[in-house]
Design a binder for these strands. Structure first.
Lengths: 156, 156
DNA sequence: TTCGGTTAGTGGCATATGCGTCTTTCTCGT
DNA sequence: ACGAGAAAGACGCATATGCCACTAACCGAA
């Protein structure tokens, strides 16, 4: 029937997220951090000392949601929020020494899960999946959806 | 670099979920329900009067997580949890009259979002995406991942 | 029948996120 | 320089979920 969950892109995406999230979380468990937290630390590290806004944009997250998510990491001393000297409204998020150490640890564990996923699911299939998801996350798709105009046929 | 988020299947999947979830939620907003709640009602309806366990399995959710998620729906009178006469431990989840009415409403709104997504993202691309995600959610993949053995090359 | 192990749910605790509202700053146009 | 409106976060509130510990029921084997 048309209400079959497997036909709803959003529902299937959510199920997949729960499943894969569990696998990655399991792999990262020894570090005490979740996969989402590793992604957070990793992105902060990659951006240097991003403002909340930039970080939220990169993670495709709501600004306030990001704020909530960062709290446990700040509480545990893995990150710090420094005031921006240029714009006193802004906050620069940075990794602490402890945060950098933790990131090194979670990165090692993450790589294990990532490699395992690739080899089991198939390197090519995994790469294709990421490509399609990246398109889904892209600004082009977002704009196209808002306008109700089909995406121009770029590689997906 | 290898820690680039776009290279992490799990991270990209999560970003895509946030993005798509927002679009579907927006479409369902007039009903006052979230996309996740519509999926819940829809699945309950499709299964008739499933036990919590069966429902959780179908939704690829944790049993207790499902219990929490059902609370708002029960509070608002959209579903009811009836004791199973055969097994007094089990609970049968069913839609109330109000729940059925609400489901009809959300289904209409959901179809709008679904159609829009298909036409913008591309019918074929959307179908392919769902197929890959279904494979990711499948028991075969789960078992293969646990064993560390590559999936046999079925269509994906 | 009775005891031990298993199964179905519940509740507490914690993270993950979005929305709306409020405060503090910025930025401009005049 | 001043005031209106935009921009960056902070917070409370609510849903989404998972893990663990605990209780109530079931189910076989002895």
């Amino acid at each position: 029937m048309e209400s079959d969950l497997s036909q709803c892109s959003n529902a299937v995406l959510r199920q997949a997220m729960r499943r894969l999230g569990q696998l990655y979380d399991e792999a990262l468990a020894p570090s005490g951090l979740r996969a989402t937290q590793h992604a957070l630390l990793s992105t902060i590290d990659a951006l240097g000392a991003p403002t909340m806004g930039l970080l939220a944009e990169r993670l495709v997250m709501d600004l306030s949601g990001l704020g909530h998510t960062l709290k446990p990491l700040a509480r545990d001393g893995l990150i710090a929020r420094l005031p921006d000297t240029r714009d006193r409204r802004a906050r620069r998020v940075t990794l602490t020494e402890l945060g950098r150490t933790k990131l090194a640890e979670t990165t090692r564990l993450w790589r294990g899960a990532q490699d395992r996923f690739e080899s089991v699911f198939g390197t090519e299939r995994a790469a294709d999946l990421r490509a399609v998801l990246r398109l889904l996350v892209s600004q082009e798709f977002h704009d196209a959806f808002a306008a109700g105009i089909p995406l121009t046929g770029q590689a997906g």
